[in-house]
Amino acid sequence: MTDILVPLEQEGTEAVVSSWLCAVGDVVALNDPLVELETDKVSVEVPSPIAGRLVEILVQPGGQARPGMVLGRVEPVATAPAGLDAPLGAAPPSPPQPQPRDMSDWHSPAVRKALAESGLDPASIRGTGRDGRLTRADVDRAIAAWADKPKAAAAAGITGKSIPHDPMRLAIARNMLKSVQEAPQVTAVFEADFSAIAAHRARHNPDLKAEGIALSYTAYLVMAAARAMQAVPQVNSRWHEDRLEVFSDINIGIGTALGDKGLVVPVIRSVQDLSLRGVATRLQDLTTRARAGQITPQDMRGGTFTISNHGVSGSLLAAPVIINQPQSAILGVGKLEKRVVVREVGGIDTIQIRPMAYVTLTIDHRVLDGHQTNGWLTAFVAALESWPIDAPA
């Protein structure tokens, strides 16, 4: 018998057996792919060292495959594989039919990862593996061809420029794609009247400003979100396959735009223990350091909920605001603007001009349902609209 060996050289830190492409007893030709190995970088097919029959599998799928390890054994057979010794004049055997390309287990992990990161349609790529399977090399070639399209367009007279992705943009892209692939996301929209917090801010901001503290509307949003967690604690949670982990600490991340450089999410920890002044102080420190490029990885760890105040850049409504996985929800706040609203005064409807903004809660529907989502937003809006003007900062 002849050993099937793991290649002595491989790309990647370690390899595991992804799948066996043949079963024990199958007759194979020389160089037929027998087993697929997966590293953190590539997927590799190990071919048969001889023509013969697969008689033994020593390493099952999921097992480690170290360089030089024996994966299985092939014994030579007296007759060639079926179809190779057909009599003259016989019709040639029908080629194997490719399996459906949309089967979840059809592609190897490395191929699935490359497809997810590139966004390419697997049906548009010609597979060179066994039975038309896609290999990582097939996907890499397709990615390279896609990258060359701007050059071809330029040659055809279409002008433009190619801007390589920086590491932050690539990380954002991967995280956003992972979020929408893993979690079914639903968005609810409410409207909030900022009159009460505008009045409170107007009264207390001068005193805090004299101390070097900027009292922004975002600080109120953070405090109101923490109060809404008391009404619906499940919003401050993380989904696990066997349980829901509801956090006691409310650690709120604030989406902070860095212009063309991307976005970071520094985290204000234990908001439930802070005053408005405390939130404003920490928020000012984190956002200032983030925009100066001085934020650290530690400043962005441990978040349990995120606020995206996209209205500061002008948008009235964004839906969905993609969840910052593995969190269960994200709050979106639109542009604050004066709008005409109807308010009842003394039993009579009146038309008033109020500072209003749309607020959204995008939820992981595995964790939360509509009534919980609306309950949280109701509590959040109520906290903003009932803020006492004489409450301490």
Rank of each mutant, 00 (worst) to 15 (best):
Y217M: 12
L317N: 01
P206N: 11
T296P: 04
G262H: 03
Q230H: 08
V271E: 04
M223E: 12
Q272N: 13
E337K: 13
A292H: 09
R289P: 00
D273V: 10
R238F: 11
S248C: 14
G303P: 04
N236T: 05
A225F: 06
K338C: 14
I307W: 02
A214C: 08
I330W: 04
I252D: 04
L286V: 10
I295G: 06
Y217N: 13
S328E: 01
N236M: 01
M229C: 15
G314T: 10
S216E: 05
P320V: 03
N236C: 03
G311Q: 02
D299H: 06
S270L: 01
K335H: 11
T304Y: 01
E245K: 04
Q234K: 14
E241M: 02
V265P: 04
W239E: 01
V279K: 09
I252S: 00
L283I: 10
V265E: 00
S275Q: 07
K335R: 15
S315F: 11
D207Y: 14
T218F: 06
T218E: 06
I323N: 05
V265C: 05
E337H: 12
R227N: 06
S275L: 13
G314M: 04
Q230P: 03
Q327Y: 02
L317K: 08
D207H: 12
Q327F: 02
L336H: 09
L276T: 06
R227G: 11
R238G: 10
A228R: 01
A257W: 11
G334L: 10
K261D: 12
D285N: 08
R243Q: 09
P326C: 09
N309A: 04
L316W: 13
R269I: 08
I295T: 12
N324R: 07
T281Q: 15
E337L: 13
M300T: 00
V321Q: 08
G311V: 02
S328Q: 15
A319I: 12
R243Y: 07
R291A: 06
L276Q: 00
V264M: 09
A319C: 11
I250L: 05
P326Q: 13
L221A: 07
A210F: 09
A292Y: 00
K261C: 12
I254P: 04
L331G: 05
Q284K: 14
R277S: 10
Q234C: 09
G259F: 12
I250S: 04
A318C: 13
R277K: 15
A231P: 14
R269W: 09
W239V: 01
M300Y: 02
G293K: 01
N251V: 07
V271S: 02
L283V: 06
Q325T: 13
R291I: 06
T218I: 08
I295N: 09
A219K: 02
N236V: 08
V246L: 05
V222L: 07
R243M: 10
V265H: 00
I307K: 03
L258N: 05
I213C: 10
N324L: 10
L258M: 04
R243G: 07
P297Q: 09
S313T: 15
I252N: 00
A226D: 11
G259V: 09
W239M: 01
D242Y: 04
K261M: 06
L258E: 05
R243N: 01
E241N: 05
I307V: 03
I268F: 04
S313Q: 15
E337S: 12
M229T: 12
